[in-house]
């Protein structure tokens, strides 16, 4: 039997993974959810036919979206995580004893149920007593929180589906309000390689750049995402992602990681020329409504 899962990274590029078993297929109120077993990537979760995580490479994403802000901000205590129903980000966060509260907002309860059943390793830490899960629209809940968080992690799906609202200016603006005066927001910024992805990345970077005083992009290599090349956004009210990195302090925590290191932290902010140009293009465009 020759069974493959394929995802179009563009209309003309297809990424395929051989499947040994299709473990789960269901439609929630928001999206199509599937779980596969695969020889190369282990267990794979897809939403609306896009790979969200694989057992094999999820550590890269989860470590890079978590440890980068944690190594910069000196005292993160209250964290808001948006999306991330698979529990991977929460798993990394719960390794820090300094964190006293993690609010997780996921719109789709079915994602969490499926992950608890099929990805128990990842979802195991969702039961940590510091974790408070709320099922609601993230735009709505963030509108209502004022300056309560040190860190917001936006672990969204791509900007062309139900997660679209998490790439908007109104969302970033309300995140700004929900952060303390030295707070940090980190988000997954998609890929800069294929055109449609690159344009979406530019749009959302522009919105973040005009909302936060500090807004930088960093990168990682994630094999199962489009082009294998992924970006994150670091937006902050006070701390600079490289200048304010406290490598010694982070190292002294003794956290074992497989991708992140303080040295890679610095390196991940050094970007290829084509990407620098793309970012400059939107950073220099100051067309705002003049009142």
């Amino acid at each position: 039997m020759d069974l493959w899962f394929s995802e179009f990274h563009t209309p003309d590029v297809k990424h395929s993974i051989r499947v040994t078993r299709h473990l789960y297929s269901g439609r929630s109120d928001y999206q199509q959810i599937d779980v596969f077993d695969t020889p190369e990537f282990g267990r794979v979760l897809t939403l609306d036919g896009s790979v969200m995580l694989t057992e094999r490479d999820e550590f890269i994403y989860d470590e890079m979206i978590t440890h980068v802000p944690m190594a910069v901000h000196p005292n993160i205590r209250d964290v808001l995580v948006i999306g991330a129903g698979d529990g991977g980000v929460v798993k990394e966060l719960t390794r820090y004893s300094q964190i006293r509260r993690i609010d997780l907002i996921e719109m789709d309860p079915q994602v969490i149920e499926v992950c608890r059943t099929y990805l128990p390793e990842n979802a195991s830490r969702l039961d940590d007593e510091r974790v408070h899960i709320r099922f609601e629209n993230a735009l709505r809940s963030i509108r209502r929180s004022n300056g309560n968080y040190d860190l917001i992690i936006v672990d969204s799906t791509d900007p062309f589906g139900p997660g679209e609202g998490l790439f908007t200016r109104e969302f970033y603006g309300n995140c700004f309000s929900a952060l303390r005066p030295d707070g940090i927001m980190v988000n997954q910024q998609g890929s800069p390689f294929y055109r449609q992805d690159a344009e979406a990345m530019q749009r959302s970077h522009k919105r973040i750049y005009t909302t936060f005083p500090i807004s930088r992009i960093y990168q990682a290599h994630i094999p199962t995402y489009a082009a294998g090349y992924w970006l994150f956004g670091f937006a902050s009210k006070r701390y600079h992602p490289v200048d304010d990195l406290n490598a010694e302090k982070w190292s002294s925590l003794g956290l074992e990681t497989r991708y992140y290191t303080p040295l890679l932290h610095v390196g991940s902010f050094y970007l290829p020329a084509f990407l620098e140009n793309m970012l400059r293009e939107v950073e220099q465009d100051n067309s705002q409504t003049v009142l």
């Binding site: 629209n137 735009l139 709505r140 963030i142 509108r143 139900p162 679209e164 609202g165 908007t168 200016r169 109104e170 969302f171 603006g173 309300n174 700004f176 309000s177 009142l291």
Partner: peptide, 19 residues
């Protein structure tokens, strides 16, 4: 759909914050 309505409300909240 409710998700677009949330965008509108949130945008109004953000406009108030900024302007």
């Amino acid at each position: 759909r409710p998700q677009e309505l949330e965008r509108l409300v949130s945008a109004l909240a953000d406009i108030r914050r900024r302007y």
